[in-house]
Simulated scan of single mutants.
Amino acid sequence: MRFRVGVVVVLLLLVGLAGCGAEKADGTAAPSGGKGVAGAGQLVRCPATPSKPAVSHGLPDISLPCLGDGPDVRLADLRGPLVINVWAQWCGPCRAEAPYLANLAKSGKVTMLGIDYDDPRPELAVKFATAEGLAYPHLKDQDKSIQSALKVGGPPLTVFVDKFGAVAYVHRGVLTSQQQLDQLVKDKLG
């Protein structure tokens, strides 16, 4: 008899817990922006991208969730001129190069995308991107899904993608000046 009562109590607890987290205190649905990451709504929304065929020497056919609001993004769908910066909030060199990336984004010369990589604290990543003025969409790759395809040893890493979707160049390591970044954009993307 005690066993049956115990099973019923466990089942009732599980049913009760199943509804937790899906509603706010007023009974309305909780927002899903950033897949529950605090402050995610402050970031630039990830755009929906039309499906395109993967290209030779292009970005990997991997979908990553948006760090902020917006849909998952399939990397193989992206075309340039595009600069993708792989970063993490715990990465000192990433913090050092952030102002150069923010300035490039403000210039409007190219499309920008960030990938928060191997980061155990996405809420701190949102805070970092917001504080640094990284006003472009960011994805999250907590599982290091891009590691093999882009040969990521660790952040920072900056990928230059041409108008056809091919990876034109990968810069490994920290960008040391605005001039260096601007020259890479000019040399690799025209």
Rank of each mutant, 00 (worst) to 15 (best):
K35N: 15
G39C: 05
G39V: 06
A40R: 04
G41L: 09
G41Q: 12
L43P: 12
V44A: 12
A48L: 13
T49G: 04
P50Y: 01
P53H: 10
A54C: 14
A54G: 15
V55Q: 03
L59M: 09
L59D: 08
I62N: 01
S63F: 02
P65K: 00
C66V: 09
L67M: 09
G68V: 12
G70A: 10
G70H: 01
R74A: 05
L75F: 00
A76K: 04
D77Y: 04
D77R: 11
D77W: 06
L78P: 15
L78I: 09
L78F: 07
G80I: 13
V83I: 07
V83N: 09
V83S: 11
N85F: 05
W87A: 07
A96T: 15
A96N: 13
E97Y: 07
Y100K: 11
L101V: 05
A102L: 14
N103P: 01
L104E: 10
G108D: 08
G108K: 03
K109Y: 09
V110P: 09
I115T: 01
D119A: 01
P120S: 02
P120Q: 09
P120T: 01
E123T: 11
V126K: 06
K127R: 10
F128I: 08
F128Y: 04
F128D: 03
A129L: 05
A131I: 09
A131G: 12
G133S: 05
L134T: 11
A135R: 12
P137K: 01
K140D: 00
Q142N: 14
Q142W: 15
D143Q: 07
D143C: 03
D143V: 07
S145I: 06
I146N: 08
S148G: 13
L150Q: 06
K151Q: 14
V152H: 05
P156K: 05
